[in-house]
Amino acid sequence: MAEEFDEWPEVQTSHDDRDTGPRDFDFPLAVAQEGSTDVEHGVADVMPSEGDEGSKRSFVYKHRRELAVVIALIVVAAAITGALVGVRQHVDGREVLSSCQQSASIYQAGVKRLEKTVAAASDALAITEDQVQDNQTVQNLRTAVDAAKRNRKPDAGCNAASFVDANRNHDMAFTKATQALGNEVENILSAQSAVMESKTARDVAVAKADLANKVTEGQTVLGTVKSNDLTARQDLSAMMNEAQQLASSTLDSTDSYVTELNKLQAAIDKYSSTAIQ
């Protein structure tokens, strides 16, 4: 029985340095089998690492399906976003066009209103400066009407083929022009009202003056005309007192003064008709 070896046997090699042939290494079979597992682990441990690039490739390969799904979702989201942006721009364009067209219609309505206002001011325009208390009101009305007649249509138009910004600018132009029309209408109405008020003030002043003069005329008649009709004399005297009080009042209408003047004139005529020849 061969003696037992606690260690591996020495490697038998040729002591001839000139021997360049292959060398055989004799390892005990039992040792190799028992250490097979460790050998495999050792080989695995010393295998070269693939590095970061290999790890990344391995990750991409392992998760290629998930990455494909993510990429597909990104593409779909981008397409949807682009479509929504296109739809939003289209909707904005239609809204701007509709607003521009509406502003154009409002402007046309403003033009017609201004034309009607000018036509309605014709009566006030016929009033001359000597018919009003303040002749500046007549000049202001004429200036306002002349300015309205010189009103120019804005260089704007709504077009479906135009860009959104162009229609938006046209919309603003129509809105601004409509505001200008409104201002001109207000200027004419204000000037027209001032003319009529000035004319009324003058008419009232004239009517009051006429009534006061008629009272003076009645006094003259009472003093110069002799009559035996006491009733006619008393009626004329009472009417003169009433007319004098009205002439001292501050009424805004000429009707009362004119009516009182006619009544006083009738009383004067009645008393004069009873005069003694």
Score class of each variant (00 low, 15 high):
residue 184 E to L: 06
residue 113 R to F: 07
residue 156 A to N: 01
residue 166 A to G: 01
residue 107 Y to H: 02
residue 173 A to R: 02
residue 175 T to R: 04
residue 139 Q to S: 08
residue 120 A to P: 04
residue 180 A to T: 14
residue 172 M to N: 08
residue 138 V to L: 09
residue 139 Q to R: 13
residue 179 Q to W: 00
residue 113 R to S: 10
residue 160 A to W: 04
residue 150 R to I: 00
residue 147 A to P: 05
residue 141 L to A: 08
residue 101 Q to P: 04
residue 109 A to N: 12
residue 139 Q to F: 12
residue 178 T to L: 09
residue 125 L to W: 14
residue 130 D to F: 15
residue 133 Q to N: 15
residue 131 Q to I: 02
residue 112 K to F: 14
residue 145 V to T: 10
residue 164 V to S: 13
residue 113 R to Y: 05
residue 104 A to R: 05
residue 130 D to M: 13
residue 161 A to P: 05
residue 156 A to D: 04
residue 172 M to Y: 00
residue 157 G to Q: 13
residue 139 Q to P: 02
residue 101 Q to N: 12
residue 132 V to E: 02
residue 160 A to K: 03
residue 156 A to Q: 02
residue 110 G to M: 04
residue 151 N to K: 00
residue 121 A to W: 05
residue 159 N to A: 11
residue 149 K to T: 12
residue 164 V to Y: 05
residue 105 S to W: 10
residue 113 R to E: 08
residue 159 N to G: 12
residue 177 A to S: 11
residue 178 T to V: 06
residue 126 A to E: 10
residue 147 A to Q: 12
residue 138 V to M: 10
residue 159 N to Y: 12
residue 104 A to G: 04
residue 142 R to C: 12
residue 127 I to P: 02
residue 102 Q to N: 14
residue 141 L to C: 09
residue 176 K to A: 11
residue 183 N to V: 01
residue 126 A to N: 15
residue 175 T to A: 06
residue 177 A to H: 07
residue 103 S to P: 06
residue 122 S to R: 13
residue 110 G to V: 03
residue 151 N to S: 07
residue 121 A to R: 07
residue 125 L to Q: 14
residue 111 V to Q: 11
residue 147 A to F: 00
residue 138 V to G: 09
residue 131 Q to F: 15
residue 154 P to K: 09
residue 149 K to H: 14
residue 175 T to N: 04
residue 164 V to F: 06
residue 179 Q to N: 15
residue 101 Q to V: 04
residue 170 H to R: 07
residue 159 N to W: 08
residue 155 D to P: 05
residue 136 Q to K: 01
residue 158 C to S: 03
residue 143 T to P: 04
residue 167 N to E: 09
residue 158 C to W: 01
residue 184 E to N: 10
residue 145 V to G: 05
residue 128 T to P: 03
residue 112 K to W: 09
residue 181 L to V: 05
residue 152 R to F: 10
residue 120 A to Y: 13
